[in-house]
Design a protein around this nucleic acid. Structure first.
Ligand SMILES: [Mn+2]
Ligand SMILES: [Mn+2]
Ligand SMILES: [Zn+2]
Ligand SMILES: [Zn+2]
Lengths: 135, 135
DNA sequence: TCCCTCTTTTAGAATTATTCTAATTTAGTT
DNA sequence: AACTAAATTAGAATAATTCTAAAAGAGGGA
């Protein structure tokens, strides 16, 4: 069941499977909303805000989730990152859309050529506006 | 001279050419360091911190500069954006490298297909680690 | 050049997202 | 069941950023 899988994910990353971590991870896996710590805390009100922050930090550290702090609300948004993907941000509504219809390999290779680094990951945000605004 | 050009850039974006704005813009154009507001204030100490923040906000609004707030220091970093480019972040040193050897057109097209939005810009950060660490 | 007016700058206070502290609880192991 | 390192917690602290409202300045027009 889902709880077993969540446990496995946490343990695979060396994290103890507390109910707080299971709840927060499940929350992120089942919400498309890219929530802030406060939003998660509002929904999981039996977990302290300090733990929400601690847990999110841990999940980011091990790479299960990512941070998006590009939005203009000055808050960090969190995103389950089971599969690598990029983000399209509607500048009219501030909505974040997940997308993965792009192969990052050529970009990785370009970055490796410039820097000589071993590329480990990426964050891509594409900004757009509603196409149908009368000119 | 450089001052005339800076004036033109500001005026082209509808911004009055105050000496504070000229100084801050010149600072960003001539530094590769991706500084924070505090770092700029340390160097341009005759300009108030409030004005540093106000000016950076304005320059971001009109698109002359961009914000990078992906670094783990919890501070916003600013970057002159005369030409679109992407960033490579050395996760060992937190150094930011500018790069432009990648054509974003296919990525824009992919994002347009998914979202239907008119794409207006992008932020790309590629993360890497030193390649030469003994395994 | 000299006003005029709107914009910008400024010092300092306020805000608030996030981090820290130190005491308590708990997961996972023996 | 007992042990212990790790995790959770309430609440205080921090600090990056924003706000306020008063003073100064830019730029256009007379
Ligand atoms: Mn941020
Ligand atoms: Mn903050
Ligand atoms: Zn996402
Ligand atoms: Zn740059």
């Amino acid at each position: 069941m889902v709880d077993k899988t969540l446990r496995d994910i946490l343990q695979a990353h060396g994290l103890k499977a507390t109910f707080q971590r299971l709840s927060i991870l499940e929350y992120l896996m089942t919400h498309e909303t890219h929530p802030t710590a406060e939003m998660i805390h509002a929904d999981l009100s039996n977990i302290s805000l300090a733990t929400i922050y601690n847990t999110l930090d841990k999940l980011v550290d091990v790479g299960i989730i990512i941070v998006i702090d590009t939005l203009k609300d000055d808050k960090r948004h969190y995103d389950y990152y089971g599969e690598p993907h990029y983000h399209i941000i509607n500048s009219n509504t501030n909505e974040i859309i997940d997308a993965d219809n792009f192969d990052v390999a050529p970009l990785f290779e370009a970055a490796r050529q410039v820097s000589g680094l071993n590329i480990t990951g990426f964050h891509i945000e594409i900004y757009g506006v509603e196409a149908d605004q009368a000119k």
